[in-house]
Computed example of a mutant assay.
Amino acid sequence: MFYVATQVPDTLFGGDNFVLADGYFYKNYRQRINGEWITAPLFVGSQLLPSVAAEAPLLQPDMRMLNKLKDQPIGTDNNTLELDKLKEMWHLANVAREMRRDPERAAEANKEAIMLDFATLSDLVKNPELYRGQIFELGGEVVEAHTGRTGENSLRSREVSSAWLRNSFLGDTLLHVKAADNFAFDEYVGNSILHGYFLMLWAYTDRQGVPRRAPVFVVYDSREQQTTMPQGANPMIYGFLAVISLLGVILFTAVRRENKNRAVAIQALTERKRKRRQRNDNES
């Protein structure tokens, strides 16, 4: 393909020199290059922009790529929007997207997912490289969620979704989750259960000026956390409600009888006072 632009970059964009270009088809153009005649479509556009090559759908993370990723040291302040520029994030988003498209495979993978409790979180913070690319089960309340436009990426995704999760069992550590496209992180009002791949530890400074690090996960599913009761709890609850109802009836009957007796006593007392007053009037 031949391309003519009104703005030509002074330098190339990188080792692969992969670019984004759009324009109008003009004609099939023929030119001699290195002694060989080449015929190809000629497009006319405004400019060339840097891009990345599209990545084929993947079923497993490339650990050689992920092992080159460096976790950020605590004390540095980094904008989480920079995550959208990491090729490793889009690589895991590719794997997560394919997992999301295959619910049966996702269900099997979820059975082997690592439960992120406080002990596991503590070890992950100490040894993040041991957990890179592993599937985790996350739980918590979505405190902030956002979906927005994104730049050039290997998935050709036009949007990227992000969210912050809070789980009281994990102390004051927040979890940051990502997904390609429009992912409804805030679909549920209460707590959610999510599954995804661990990417890295991201350092930032919170609104109170405290330096922190958040584990970042690229997720592929989310569901509402259901509150379940222990086996055999229903008969116990029904029995308790029956006892409460019976006590309520007894108390209501007792109060009603007491009120009736009180009314009779007041009426009798009033009648005695009336007769005494009448007798005193007659004697005088």
Rank of each mutant, 00 (worst) to 15 (best):
V4P: 05
V4G: 04
G15Q: 06
A21W: 02
F25D: 09
F25A: 08
Y26D: 15
N28V: 07
N28Q: 09
Y29M: 06
R30V: 02
A40H: 04
L42D: 02
V44K: 11
S51R: 07
D62Y: 05
M63Y: 15
R64G: 06
K68N: 02
L81D: 15
E82N: 04
L83Y: 06
D84L: 14
L86A: 04
E98Q: 08
E104F: 08
A107L: 13
E108N: 15
N110R: 12
L121G: 02
K126A: 04
L130I: 14
Y131G: 02
G133K: 01
Q134C: 01
Q134F: 00
E137V: 09
E137P: 06
E137K: 14
E137G: 03
E137L: 06
A145Q: 03
H146F: 13
S157E: 14
R158G: 15
E159G: 08
W164C: 10
S168R: 11
S168L: 09
S168T: 13
F169S: 15
F169R: 13
T173W: 01
A179G: 09
A179R: 09
D181L: 09
F185W: 04
D186S: 01
M200A: 02
A203Q: 05
Y204M: 11
T205M: 07
P211C: 10
R213F: 12
F217T: 04
V219H: 05
D221A: 11
S222K: 08
R223H: 14
Q226D: 10
Q226E: 10
T227F: 12
G232A: 08
Y238D: 10
L241S: 00
I244Q: 06
L247E: 06
F252C: 10
A254Q: 14
V264F: 07
E271K: 04
K275Y: 14
N282P: 06
N282H: 07
